[in-house]
Design a protein around this nucleic acid. Structure first.
Lengths: 151, 151
DNA sequence: CTAAGTGCAAAGCATTTGCAGGCTT
DNA sequence: AAGCCTGCAAATGCTTTGCACTTAG
């Protein structure tokens, strides 16, 4: 219940960025949320406990952490950015209607790493696997609506 | 050089949507472009040959085709929507800096289909595999800039 | 004929940027 | 002390919506 904090501070120093209350807060909130929150979701949650926090800062913090590889921006079919602090390899179920993202661990993909073959002028960093479809709430529609909350 | 047209018309009828000049044009332009163009890129290209075409229409056409499954919205880490008309299974190299998407065919993933295991209240439609990293133009930066054009 | 599709202009959100302080190092 | 970070407000950029007209079926 305290380890992540020291680890995170170490990571920040190693990455050459300063340890600020905002970075700590955003990282903790993200790590505690398994639903791949959006920047705005994190802001809303944090603003309650950290008045004065700016939405801009949340965006900037997420951006800087992603640049140093401390968190990931998960790719999605919806237009809003979603983030992930979980380092372990896992796959995503993404609903093409409401954009919800759920973690899964599919044995078939579990041990597939970054392909070692010659990639055309490209530096591979990691592989993302997404099962695209429709979640329970969105089953029935073809797409376009927003029946689920996506959380 | 004419087959796609009749096939597309048939698909539209089967999907219950009308065959219009705009739909034909957008679909043809998308199918002819291997770079996973954005809605705006398609609009710009088409506006030259089809004056009066509206950007709104391009968005709406892409949306309706995606809803019926005639094309796909490819998931990406960047904020702009990119589309794909290629039905064959393939994987994507996505640059996390400039958002460029390149097709690849990785033997390891080639024959991996939608997992048949019990997915938690989810209707799986297809699987997407992305190798995230940095393209040649963006190598050197950590992220954030826009050195490449992404096309 | 009639409902789906289109164009235009304006609105809507998510995200970014400029600038003046504030706080980590 | 120096410069990275933050907050605020305004700007940007992609995408959607309202409305009246057009056109495929």
């Amino acid at each position: 219940m305290r380890g992540w904090c020291r680890d995170f501070q170490r990571s920040c120093r190693a990455a050459g960025i300063r340890v600020t209350a905002q970075r700590l807060a955003v990282y903790e909130a993200l790590a505690a949320d398994g639903a791949h929150p959006t920047a705005d979701a994190l802001y809303t949650r944090l603003a309650r406990v950290m008045p004065g926090l700016s939405r801009t800062t949340v965006y900037r913090v997420l951006d800087s952490l992603e640049r140093r590889g401390l968190i990931r921006r998960v790719s999605s079919t919806a237009g809003v950015a979603r983030f992930d602090a979980r380092p372990e390899a896992h796959q995503h179920l993404v609903c093409r209607v409401c954009g919800a993202i759920v973690d899964v661990s599919l044995p078939t993909f579990r041990r597939l790493g970054v392909p070692r073959g010659p990639l055309p002028r490209f530096v591979a960093e990691h592989v993302e696997v997404q099962v695209v479809g429709r979640c329970a709430a969105c089953h029935g529609q073809d797409a376009g609506g927003d029946p689920g909350t996506g959380t």
